[in-house]
Design a protein around this nucleic acid. Structure first.
Lengths: 148, 148
DNA sequence: TCAATATAATTAGTATACTAATTATATTGT
DNA sequence: ACAATATAATTAGTATACTAATTATATTGA
């Protein structure tokens, strides 16, 4: 079987498994990942500054319109709050609500459950190898960005 | 970095790279994969029977509405043809057009270019290991299908 | 036989991922 | 200072991936 096909199928199954677990809380994987990223900012005192949508898109390596949509749904359902950025009227900051901060450890547990199910038949050193290979693929495809 | 995140990023980069190459021909990765699957059927004489949408969805492990949409776009652009199934009026068979059969080897080359770029820094045995790990993840996540 | 059930494709509706274009605001260079 | 340029978010539009419901046709079982 083709590597591309295996990659895409494994990824799809991981997402499906975690989405199923998160659906009880009316969340999706993409939404959880953004909540996690905002939390990361909040809990790293040296970062100091608050996080804005462009920042999230850059860190998660996805495009800004996608982030706009996910943020909108998170705002609609009260998972996050919008705060004015007094230094740049084009933008705004994002914060988790208290409810979200409380529930986040439970979300991390669900994520952990999916991942440990996924690698349940692998040794720890095999998981490390797998991650090393994936990081190399990411580096190889980033480099150049344009081909030929 | 979390395994789920690495998987999803590597998959996304592979898709982006191949989509860029295929865009010259006005095709997407998902469309190419379905063309490949139809060809596989056509070229395996022992399969005999023609392929229908349900068959494609089952082999590629994706849902039927997605296949319906992709097939519609492939029909619209003359990549495939619809043939009546005389034994089941609910369904129909799919065939590649001659133009598509001619161009398919070129599409395979583009796919090969993306994959070899992706694993350019890996040894051959490392790629084999990677594929083995991915197959195990797929098996682990399939089993049970429901958790707990 | 024929009602119950199953299956094939489709439709409707949602979320994500992307590109291109737009709007508003900041920054730069002269 | 201010025109040119860059940046932040958004809008519009497309494709994919999914769930639930619908329609048409097949298959099953009493």
């Amino acid at each position: 079987m083709n590597l591309g096909y295996l990659l895409s199928k494994a990824t799809r199954l991981c997402k499906q498994d975690l989405n199923l677990r998160l659906s009880e809380l009316d969340l999706t994987v993409a939404q959880y990942i953004i909540l996690r990223d905002i939390f990361m900012y909040e809990s790293q005192p040296e970062l100091e500054k608050h996080v804005n949508p462009a920042c999230i898109a850059a860190r998660l390596n996805c495009d800004r319109p996608t982030v706009t949509g996910i943020i909108q749904r998170l705002l609609d359902h009260g998972w996050i709050l919008k705060k004015d950025n007094l230094h740049d009227k084009r933008s705004f900051y994002l914060e988790l609500t208290n409810k979200t901060r409380e529930i986040l450890p439970k979300l991390d547990e669900l994520d952990e459950m999916t991942l440990s199910k996924a690698v349940s038949s692998l040794e720890e050193h095999e998981v490390d190898q797998l991650k090393k290979f994936l990081r190399q693929i990411i580096k190889n495809l980033h480099k150049g960005e344009e081909h030929e």
